[in-house]
């Protein structure tokens, strides 16, 4: 395998602008599913998986266009900042997202930015960061339970919440996200062959 190191130096103006534009696209796709997630907690829990399924194309294209350290970090940072500024996000997702970005960046660095396996794995790591969004269901669980008692709602509601916020559900969510990230990356690869390579973009 011919691993090419092209991480010489920091990103320049052009690459920074590219990162900005692709982050906007990533955020837009992300937002669509975030809004859908408001419909039902189940969709919300499955949301990281949906996002992983559909954001493969912008992620992979960004990886191909800016093979330098920091590109994914910046994309995650911008997504986090915009969500934070609109107030839709709590600190939970920012932390989860940050960790995922660092991991994704590390994988990219170690595999030399050009390897397709490396990019695939980094995309998986990056996607898992989105589980920070429904994570408060588990983190605020005691809050929710305390509220239920405070409002005098019967015991069976506690049961409903328990059913939804089990450790098993958490595991299912993470595994499903990883699987969807692989599918999303595969879809991106097919589209690359079909369109972007012909157009000379990649």
């Amino acid at each position: 395998m011919n691993v090419q190191r092209s991480s010489n130096g920091k990103m320049k103006g052009k690459e920074l602008i590219t990162v900005g534009i692709f982050s906007a696209i990533y955020f837009a796709i992300n937002l669509v599913f975030m809004v859908l997630g408001g419909l039902h907690p189940i969709i919300w829990i499955l949301m990281p998986a949906f996002i992983a399924l559909f954001t493969g194309v912008p992620y992979m294209l960004l990886c191909a266009k800016v093979p330098k350290i920091g590109a994914i970090m910046l994309m995650g940072l911008i997504t986090g900042i915009i969500y934070f500024a609109t107030g839709t996000f709590t600190v939970v997702i920012l932390v989860a997202f940050l960790l995922a970005c660092i991991l994704a960046e590390a994988i990219r660095y170690m595999t030399g930015f050009r390897s397709s396996v490396g990019n695939l794995l980094s995309y998986v790591a990056f996607s898992v960061g989105m589980i920070g969004s429904p994570l408060p269901i588990w983190l605020f669980r005691n809050d929710f339970l305390a509220q239920i008692k405070e409002q005098g709602i019967g015991e069976h509601y506690v049961q409903v919440l328990d059913d939804l916020a089990t450790g098993k559900m958490l595991v299912i969510m993470i595994i499903l996200t990883i699987v969807c990230a692989f599918i999303g990356a595969a879809v991106a690869k097919v589209l690359f062959r079909k369109h972007f390579e012909k157009a000379g973009i990649v």
Binding site: G38, H40, P41, W44, A85, T86, G87, T88, F89, T90, P136, I137, F140, D143, F144, Q147, I148, I153, Y157, V160, L161, L164
Partner: peptide
């Protein structure tokens, strides 16, 4: 209740941030 409980509780938690965000 089971459908909307988490949603409503979470929405309530997010509103102050949403106000400053707006």
């Amino acid at each position: 209740v089971s459908i909307f409980f988490i949603l409503i509780s979470y929405a309530r938690k997010v509103i102050p941030c949403l106000i400053v965000g707006t």
